[in-house]
């Protein structure tokens, strides 16, 4: 029997090559972020000097408060938090409900509905853009925050349902059967047994959904108009247009916007690969 550990320790040159390639990949991945943060710390006017400096001649953290006061960013942040929270909550609740039904509750036409649900994911958004726009306009929800989270209370999206359903399929059914024998209702089983067991998949979906809504600027761009309804992403975009001569300020706000995403990503990191792996997206 070949000892895998020994084999990998043995190939030192292979290991070094792997380190170099991966290190290079990580450098390329992170370099734009480095540039983002460095640009945000540059002195006034230094963002336009040539040649560009890898390390700014002096650091100016005061760019951050200056930028933050230039536009109603607290309001934009509030809008973003509200939309992200409500949309993610809706996604988690309704996607896991639907996923549970697709995985465990037999009903007529289940596979057809599952197929249709999945096919929503393949539809180019441009196709439904205009009808949806007109629908929200008709419902008088245009230029409010409603179009940004309301749709996600209706299943949250095919991909999320798929991810959670695949995960539930891998859970042993015996536990639920035992609960039935003990007299638990299906609702109780769903909330007390299935949901807690599905935590890794739900965490992964939560992170995906959070990142999507926090970062999304297409929907706000199309469905909102007034300054009062701007999210952080859209606010940053207009800020970028207005302050295009002061890149360091734009980059300061962009950096701040990135912080919550990175925090969530690091916190949920362990669920990320395992959530995808266990969901059966991989390996089936």
């Amino acid at each position: 029997m070949v000892d895998r550990e020994e084999k990998y320790i043995g190939s030192i040159s292979g290991k070094i090559a792997a380190y170099i390639l991966l290190g290079f990949g990580a450098l390329v991945s992170l370099m734009p972020l480095y540039w983002l943060v460095m640009t945000s710390l540059r002195p006034a006017g230094a963002e336009f000097t040539y040649p560009p400096e890898w390390i700014p001649s002096s650091f100016h953290p005061e760019n951050y408060p200056v930028a933050w006061r230039r536009a109603p960013f607290w309001l934009f942040t509030f809008n973003s938090v509200l939309v992200t929270f409500l949309a993610t909550l809706g996604t988690l609740l309704t996607a896991s409900m639907a996923a549970y039904a697709f995985a465990r509750v037999p009903f007529y036409g289940r596979n057809v509905w599952f197929g249709l649900t999945l096919s929503t994911m393949m539809l180019p958004w441009a196709v439904t853009l205009i009808p949806r726009f007109l629908l929200f306009k008709y419902m008088q929800l245009f230029d409010s925050l409603w179009p940004l989270f309301l749709p996600f209370w209706f299943g949250g999206g095919g991909f999320y349902i798929f991810l959670i359903r695949q995960f539930i399929m891998t859970l042993p059914v015996e536990m639920e059967e035992a609960a039935v024998v003990d007299g638990a209702s299906r609702v109780r089983i769903f909330f007390m047994i299935t949901m807690p067991l599905t935590k890794p998949a739900i965490a992964a979906v939560g992170v995906f959904s959070f990142i999507h809504h926090w970062n999304d600027f297409i929907s706000p761009l199309i469905y909102t108009n007034r300054e009062e309804t701007r999210t952080l992403a859209l606010g940053l975009r207009y800020f970028g247009d207005e302050q295009f001569t002061e890149f360091r300020l734009i980059m300061a706000v962009a950096t701040l916007m990135l912080v919550p995403v990175l925090v969530v990503f690091f916190a949920a990191n362990k669920y990320f690969v395992s959530g995808v792996a266990l969901s059966g997206l991989a390996g089936r």
Partner: peptide
């Protein structure tokens, strides 16, 4: 290394658009 490699997935498109333009 894995975390470092996955980070671009998290960056708001707006921020990546701006920084790459610069």
């Amino acid at each position: 290394l894995r975390v470092g490699l996955l980070v671009p997935l998290m960056v708001p498109p707006l921020a990546s658009g701006l920084i790459w333009r610069i």
